[in-house]
Amino acid sequence: MKILKTLAGAVAMAGLMAGSAVAADMTVGFSQIGSESGWRAAETTLTREQAEKRGIDLKFADAQQKQENQIKAIRSFIAQGVDAILLAPVVATGWDQVLEEAKDAEIPVVLLDRQVDSSDDLYLTAVGSDLEHEGEVAGQWLVDNVGDKDCNVVELQGTTGSSPAIKRKAGFEKAIAGHDNIEIVRSQTGDFTRTKGKEVMESFLKAENGGKDICALYAHNDDMAVGAIQAIKEAGLKPGSDILVVSIDAVPDIFLAMAAGEANATVELTPNMAGPAFDALEAYKKDGTMPPKFIQTESKLFTQSDDPKAVYEEKKNQGY
């Protein structure tokens, strides 16, 4: 069912973009971590779409959260003599040997989404988002929107100690630094889940005068924001107007909320890591252009004025 949808989407895309497809016949192996989240599933979908569109033969391997499976997959890609390898590494360490093998076989490796601790001459480039920058974009949106008004912000953090939670918090704080009218009054972890987002938001509302003292919510991901929006509604307030809601990830459900006026803005963590990766690979294959060692994807801001309904329709078939 889902595969059918994906195929339909891919075919449509391919048709639209046929003009820009590069004829070069390239075979690329893609070692994906797994499908632990909707975003991950969307990344897989978009990688397949991008490959289709460019006429790239994509060999896909799902590692089911295991590094040993990824290493096996890479070795088999090398043995099959692919032209390049995409790797979304499940952990940061332990890649030296297999990357060395790929290098010896003169197969360029592009890292997707996550980094590794290996020397950077072992891979061609890494494509990823800047977590701190995402927080900064969200913070900047708030700064731009509240103007000089006083604004008490409550923050729903990601899982305590995780790198997205630390960096998205830091980026947001950087953006609001110097704007004394904006203050984070409460900050708690919502474990990146809807349930905890809702529960923690309920306690924020109780602690801050039934929510009347809260001007904005910043959630480290959309799922927590979706949960929190329900808590705000159940407390008799209007999310999106009584309390501004800004979050990160741009998963489809937040666009539904935006379309309903209940969420204000989200920063996209694009699942299209493959696009820039294929661009770099094609340039490298064509005339040996060396890409920079880190290609940062765009952290695009979506607001209610970006036709959220349409974005939702577009995203909902990407496997989120």
């Binding site: 632990e36 889940t193 809807r194 349930t195 979706v226 949960g227 329900q230 459900d253």
Partner: peptide
């Protein structure tokens, strides 16, 4: 109850 609370079934996190 947990699913109805967030109006969705979150297989990864429900009841974790």
């Amino acid at each position: 109850v947990a699913a109805a609370d967030i109006r969705g079934a979150d297989a990864n996190n429900a009841g974790l």
